[in-house]
């Protein structure tokens, strides 16, 4: 009896802890989003007057309207920018995965002298801050006549050390017996890569692709710098907050723009979450 009672208390306190943790997580992670979401429906004059003193009005637009969304979409060419971002992100993901998985296969399956050193040299580029690379890379893209195109936005980043690192981990987890058997059956290395190895790391490939998509979608400085024409503008640049000194920023539109730029990612990740977790798990990080 006593034991059962203690268990009951234990369970109750565990439940309490669980509820408390969930509450903290929701407050810390969700409230900021709720605020920005509700603000995006408010007009300029109520956004900040609702916040102080803190009340439920902060998180709920009492006289909400879609005006900010309409004006943002109308004045900032959001449709075009969204399409550009999708094209760039999809192409970046495809090329990154193709180059990365081929290289990972080469580094893990076909041992050659200095492959470890080579991998180290590749990883070094991961350590260079992108903001620092913008100046020389911009000049270089000019020499290559690659500026002012959608291609220019993603091409410099498709040889991604991050993707290679992730994929290499996964490739190493696959037992070599698998490909040895295929070689005995007379398959060439490319066939082994395509029919044996790739299918067994599918979830890592998908997870890696999603992370690359995320990086690509959220990049700002490079697409801004390398392309001049509005025809090639990406969504993050299109919705960036922008007021000259002596002018007044329109916060409602800024928040509406932020929601427009973020929502597609949230939706994708809501549906693809399973793949990310699986992908990272099967990449053999432990």
């Amino acid at each position: 009896m006593a034991v059962r009672a203690r268990r009951g208390v234990f369970r109750l306190s565990r439940a309490a802890v669980t509820v408390a943790v969930i509450a903290i997580v929701v407050i810390a992670f969700l409230l900021p989003y709720l605020w920005i979401l509700s603000s995006s429906f408010k007009d300029q004059s109520t956004i900040f007057s609702d916040v102080s003193p803190l009340s439920w009005k902060t998180f709920w637009p009492t006289e909400g309207s879609l005006a900010n969304y309409f004006s943002t979409i109308e004045t900032k060419n959001v449709g075009r920018a969204m399409l550009n971002s999708v094209i760039i992100a999809v192409l970046q993901v495809i090329f990154t995965l193709v180059l990365g998985s081929l290289a990972a296969f080469g580094l893990t399956r076909i041992k050659f002298r200095g492959s470890g050193l080579l991998f180290g040299l590749i990883l070094v580029t991961f350590l260079v801050p992108m903001e620092a690379l913008v100046v020389p890379l911009y000049a270089w893209m000019g020499d290559l006549h690659l500026r002012n195109s959608l291609v220019a936005v993603f091409l410099p980043w498709i040889a991604s050390p991050f993707a290679l690192f992730m994929l290499r981990q996964a490739f190493e987890e696959i037992p070599t017996e698998l490909d040895e058997a295929a070689y005995i059956d007379g398959a060439g290395p490319f066939r082994v890569f395509w029919s044996v190895i790739l299918p067994s790391v599918r979830s890592t490939v998908v997870g890696c692709g999603l992370v690359v998509f995320l990086f690509s979608w959220n990049s700002f400085l490079w697409p801004l710098v390398v392309n001049s024409s509005s025809a090639q503008q990406v969504i993050q640049v299109a919705v960036a907050q922008s007021a000259a000194p002596g002018q007044l920023p329109n916060w409602g539109e800024t928040f509406a723009g932020a929601m427009i730029a973020t929502l597609p990612l949230i939706l994708i990740f809501l549906f693809a979450q399973r793949h990310i977790v699986q992908g990272l798990a099967s990449s053999g990080l432990k």
Partner: peptide, 13 residues
């Protein structure tokens, strides 16, 4: 034909 950048990046551009 109009090309646009955020004001903060106008001078950089």
């Amino acid at each position: 034909a109009v090309d646009e950048v955020p004001f903060d990046q106008l001078a950089t551009k």
